[in-house]
């Protein structure tokens, strides 16, 4: 699980937005998590962030952008838990 913080800057170097824009990447092992479970979770979370799915080696890489401010601290963990619950089902 990785999380990165970004600040938006004006070309002259001034900070134009105080709001911190966050995007994060979650890597799910293909041998443990199914793509079907991940897709179901994305469907459930579609109103909370934007999702991009990519495959890299033995991992599914999920990129989350435009995350809602109120849930940005917990979305990563909650997302992982939801995927796991879908795998079990």
């Amino acid at each position: 699980m990785e999380g990165r913080l970004f600040r938006a800057f004006h070309p002259l170097g001034k900070e134009v937005q105080k709001k911190i824009k966050i995007f994060m990447t979650i890597s799910f092992n293909k041998n443990i998590y199914s793509l079907k479970a991940i897709k179901k979770t994305i469907q459930a979370y579609k109103n909370l962030a934007k999702f991009k799915v990519a495959e890299k080696g033995s991992y599914f890489k999920i990129e989350l952008t435009d995350i809602k401010k109120e849930i940005e601290t917990i979305i990563e963990d909650e997302f992982c838990n939801y995927v796991l619950s879908q795998v079990k089902e």
Binding site: N29, I32, C80, N81, S85
Partner: peptide, 18 residues
Amino acid sequence: VYGAAYVFLNRTYIFLDE
């Protein structure tokens, strides 16, 4: 592992990897 993890979902955040 899935079964045990499912039991703990309400108390913990769980992440599995190989």
